[in-house]
Design a protein around this nucleic acid. Structure first.
Length: 861
RNA sequence: GGGCUCUUAGCUCAGUUGGUAGAGCGCCUCGUUUACACCGAGGAUGCCGGGGGUUCGAGUCCCUCAGGGCCCACCA
């Protein structure tokens, strides 16, 4: 250990510029953030982090930086505490967002019926929403499509990684995973097969929320309400005795799918009608009038038509009242050529339906209104209104409900025991802040159906099953792969005991065409990153994880589904702590989102202000608290930047008082502290010891904002008051002050290292070997503070005020001054005289600290 | 309609078990000092959303009202 390798030269004019690439490179070379598995094994524990894999095809916004910084602060604190940090990074690259991006970027779309083309060159490179219309997209084979997905996500992921490195995330980049990767596919399929074996996964034919654009089923958790214009249409149904019943509907086009009218059981207006029938207008189908508690007396006319299926309430009625299914909408969102209830229609009804067949919902509605008007069954004009309609969160058209066969995983919605287990698991997890648990509990308690996991898409983890085909070519029993054969793609792989020639042949087999929902893979991130089954030693070390860090918007999806999978597979919670970050809102307190167009991308912000400054901004917000961000006026960034620059300068100043040799262990610190004898120096360290205790307690509770606040507050007092008070002594070579300054800077650098990793590392490198980020978290033993430092600070402010009021320079000599204050001030009288340039200082004992009199020398000419 | 959360200085926010209202930014004044001009020093600024209650004492606890935000439910 030579002195040359021990420290870098202290620059003449320290600056933040250039620190990020410099230290990112060194950290990578030195493996500063590598998970030390051997050490973790011998310690028998690790601090493991379940990292949110960002959607690789999406763009990052400032909210990501916010939430990922919070996670990194915890990682860095625990690392410095000597824990072994397992901090992987994942990319969520499977699923619809990637497919959509690939379609636009390359101008293609997937057509699974087409053959694979070797060396395929897409028509476009770098397209976006505007440059690629769906109609112009070139159809290509599934395999070609997936290859393009792979190509683009790898490119996107590289850019993400660059950004995370620039931000100083202390991720172990050798632990990167992809949700489309082989390991992830294996884990997702294995977990699914185990769910299947235990009866937790099952297939069912049921009304399903269906996106007509993407032509896939979607899950409850992916729904989003959007306000849509609509109109109430008053329509008459006919009673056998010639009477009529008026209903109001916003979806008159679903009249051919009407299976009943429904009113509330307590509604006197309709009680006498329950059990009777009416015929539908236009189609003449006889439907019953039924009672159900979900019917609302005050909506419309209080009696509604039940159609298969206009909305999720229809599904409930249909199921609970055991009504027939007369679906009229196809998977493409158009009316079927033949209505399933067609045989019930009158001749006129069949003619009316012919007008609707093949039309979209929009056109069919217009056609139906015309027909109703002609038949006299429409009362008055439609009344415009707006109402909330369910959309797929990534879709542009309202969801329809169609009957399809899908895969489900039990999630407690229909199983009280499982629901209780999930609620209990939620109570075992420490949420930060605690109230976020309520959101989880609300979601669990409000689930209305099991989790639909199959998607009729292409780029994702295939459902790993085949089906026997009977003599008629109809699907029979499920064929399951061996776990050791995973991952499998049933559309190209052959099930055990079959040959490829039997594919699609009666008596042979057929692969399941569907893939799994993205969340059914990402709900297994702890298992994927932790080597579940593939590396039991590692898994035993990291699972359950120490921390899950994520945004509050995905509690119902990612957090819930992860708890569910861990509960089903391991009977365990997936992590002991869940840190939930708030949203970033714009100056009008609106949540930032792509659709509002107020998203701020982090690249330019990082370039302009520097990573430490941006991290400071993120760190000043507590978990669970929304933070306002005004890109026009990024004040918070400036404050962090100022702090980082001050750290550089203050440390340089402190190190200028000696040989710059630092302290790398608590033991050295103790030895160093033996030199600290001056009462003011002792008291400063005592105050600092308190700060260390508070910051430590705060970080232990994932309260990084509090830790930063107390540290920063002390740091500024240290710079503005203490440093000024003792610098004359330090210049003179006083050992007590120099030792105290060094020790304090070393402690503060470590306290600030999680927030300002670049500036603190730069300073640390001037006087230490090794990284501040693997240095020990400071522990300062000290007596309780005597109150000397704050008293002297107050006295100093009084002296400065006197000079300011005299409009004199702070440098002005003071001939004599009388200072009132506690007796303890006498312990720092010499320092006060030095900093105030006071020739004669008289102290008067008093509870109040004030300058009683002051005589300034003439200002120098 | 239900749940959670927030409302403190012009702005962004702290305020631990109840004990004299805080910080930063911005603003005003001063300062050209050998750590720092991406600087330093000093100063002003409050019906703590409204109204009740508990208490010797409430920003803090309870009730209530109002207004933001988020989530869920609400498609007739």
């Amino acid at each position: 250990m030579t002195s040359a390798s021990r420290s870098a030269a202290i620059p003449e004019k320290p600056a933040l510029e250039g620190l990020e690439p410099k230290w990112a490179d060194i950290w990578e070379q030195q493996g500063t953030y590598r998970f030390d598995r051997a050490a973790a094994l011998s310690a028998g524990s690790a601090f493991s982090i379940d990292t949110p894999p960002p959607t690789a095809s999406g763009s990052l916004h400032i909210g990501h930086v916010f939430s990922y910084t919070h996670m990194d602060l915890a990682a860095r604190f625990h690392r410095m505490r000597g824990e072994h940090i397992f901090y992987p990074m994942g990319w969520d690259d499977n699923g619809l967002p990637t497919e959509r991006r690939v379609q636009n970027y390359y101008g293609v779309r997937c057509d699974p019926t087409l053959p694979y083309v070797e060396g395929y060159v897409p028509p476009l490179e770098g397209g976006d929403n505007s440059s690629s219309k769906a109609a112009d997209q070139v159809p290509i084979s599934r395999r070609n499509f997936i290859e393009l997905c792979e190509r683009l996500t790898i490119e996107d992921e590289r850019q993400f990684e660059d950004l995370w490195r620039a931000m100083g995330l202390s991720v172990d980049w050798s632990l990167t995973y992809r949700t489309i990767g082989v390991e992830a596919q294996t884990v997702a399929q294995r977990a699914f097969l185990r769910n299947l074996a235990r009866g937790e996964a099952y297939q069912a034919e049921a009304p399903t929320l269906w996106d007509i654009t993407f032509r896939t089923a979607v899950a409850q958790a992916e729904l989003e309400d959007k306000e849509q214009p609509a109109a109430y249409h008053a329509v008459t149904f006919h009673q056998a005795d010639g009477g009529t019943i008026e209903i109001a509907t916003t979806r008159p086009e679903l009249l051919p799918a009407c299976v009943a009218l429904v009113a509330h059981p307590d509604d006197e207006r309709y009680q006498h009608l329950f059990g009777t029938t009416v015929t539908t207008p236009l189609f003449g189908v006889e439907v019953p009038i039924v009672a159900h508690r979900l019917a609302q007396k005050d909506k419309g006319t209080g009696i509604a038509m039940i159609c298969t299926f206009g909305d999720v309430t229809d599904v409930v009625w249909w199921r609970e009242l055991d009504l027939p299914n007369r679906t009229v909408l196809g998977r493409d969102g158009r009316f079927l050529d033949e209505a399933p209830a067609g045989e019930l229609f009158t001749d006129a009804g069949r003619a009316a339906y012919a007008e609707l067949a093949g039309k979209t919902v929009f056109s069919a509605k217009a056609a139906t209104v015309e027909l109703l008007r002609a038949s006299g069954d429409l009362i008055g004009d439609p009344k415009p209104t707006t109402h909330a309609v369910k959309f797929f969160e990534k879709g542009d058209k309202p969801l329809e409900i169609v009957s399809t066969r899908q895969w489900y995983i039990a999630n407690g919605a229909r199983d009280e025991k499982l629901r209780d287990r999930l609620l209990d698991a939620g109570r075992q997890i420490d949420f930060h802040p605690d109230f976020m648990r309520v959101r989880y509990e609300n979601w669990v308690g409000g689930l209305t159906g099991d989790w639909l996991i199959s998607r009729q898409r292409f780029f994702g983890v295939p459902i790993p099953v085949w089906y026997h085909l009977d003599a008629d070519g109809e699907r029979g029993d499920v064929i399951i792969p061996d776990e050791h054969a995973l991952p499998v793609d049933p559309s190209t792989d052959v099930p055990p005991g079959f040959t490829e020639t039997q594919r699609g042949v009666p008596g042979g087999f057929e692969g399941d065409h569907d893939i799994m929902d993205t969340w059914s893979t990402s709900s297994l991130t702890p298992q994927i990153a932790g080597g579940w089954e593939s590396d039991p030693e590692l898994f035993g070390l990291v699972f359950p994880y120490s921390l899950r860090s994520q945004g509050q918007d995905i509690i119902r999806t990612w957090l819930f589904s992860t708890v569910l999978r861990a509960q089903l597979e391991h009977g365990s919670i997936p992590w002991t702590n869940a840190g939930i970050s708030g949203f970033i809102v714009d100056p009008d307190r609106k949540k930032m989102s792509k659709s509002k167009g107020n998203v701020v991308t982090p690249g330019a912000i990082l370039d302009e202000h520097g990573a430490d400054a941006v991290r400071y901004w993120a760190a000043s917000s507590r978990l669970g608290t929304d933070a306002a961000f005004d890109p026009q006026n990024p004040k918070q960034m400036k404050i962090g930047r100022r702090l980082a620059i001050k750290v550089l300068n203050a440390a340089k100043f402190v190190y200028s008082f000696g040989d710059g040799r630092g302290l790398s262990s608590a033991a050295e610190g103790d030895a160093y502290r033996n030199h600290v004898t001056n009462p003011l120096d002792v008291d400063m360290l005592a105050v600092l010891a308190d700060v260390v205790r508070q910051a430590t307690t705060a970080y232990e509770a994932f309260d990084h904002a509090r830790a930063l606040e107390v540290t920063e507050q002390f740091f500024w007092t240290f710079c503005d008051d203490y440093l000024e008070l003792v610098k004359e002594r330090a210049y003179a070579g006083d050992g007590s002050s120099v030792a105290a300054l060094r020790l304090a800077i070393d402690v503060m650098l470590r306290l600030l290292a999680p927030v300002l990793p670049f500036a603190t590392e730069e300073v640390w490198s001037w006087t230490h070997e090794g990284s501040v980020h693997t240095a020990a978290w400071p522990i300062l033993e000290a007596e309780a503070p005597r109150g000397l430092l704050p008293a002297v600070s107050a006295a100093l402010i009084g002296i400065r005020r006197a000079k300011t009021e005299a409009q004199a320079s702070q440098k002005t000599e003071v001939i004599s001054a009388t200072l009132a204050g506690p007796a303890i001030l006498a312990d720092a009288a010499d320092d006060l005289k030095a900093v105030g340039r006071i020739a004669q200082l008289e102290l008067v004992e008093s509870d109040e600290i004030e300058v009683r009199s002051i005589e300034l020398a003439e200002a120098p000419a």
